[in-house]
């Protein structure tokens, strides 16, 4: 069980949060202009890597805010947490 440092509430137990998949996948501004393949790329294709992963989390049983997390999936080490719209602080 992680301890997650919610950027709005501070450190809380993982059980208060919900994972929301890969981060930095922007919804296309004009979906109607995309081909099936381009739309499918947005819709279905997600990374699932062993190592550094950028992901979205939601403090669902707290402030309900979404935020981003950089996590090493091989050992669950949280490298960074930052708000939606902010640039990732690590590469």
């Amino acid at each position: 069980m992680f301890i997650i440092n919610c950027p709005f509430c501070g450190e809380r137990e993982q059980s208060e949060f919900k994972a929301g998949g890969e981060a930095h996948i922007e919804r296309p501004k004009q979906p109607t202009e995309l081909s099936d393949d381009e739309w499918a790329e947005y819709l279905f294709m997600r990374k699932n890597i062993k190592g550094i992963q950028f992901e979205r989390w939601n403090h669902i049983h707290g402030c309900r805010k979404w935020f981003n997390m950089v996590r090493d999936t091989s050992n669950d080490e949280i490298k960074a947490i930052y708000k939606m719209g902010e640039k990732p602080p690590v590469k």
């Binding site: 919900k18 939601n58 669902i60 939606m84």
Partner: peptide, 13 residues
Amino acid sequence: LGKLEDYLQTEWP
């Protein structure tokens, strides 16, 4: 509610 919040906070702030 979670889904609507998601769109509001992340896609359409």
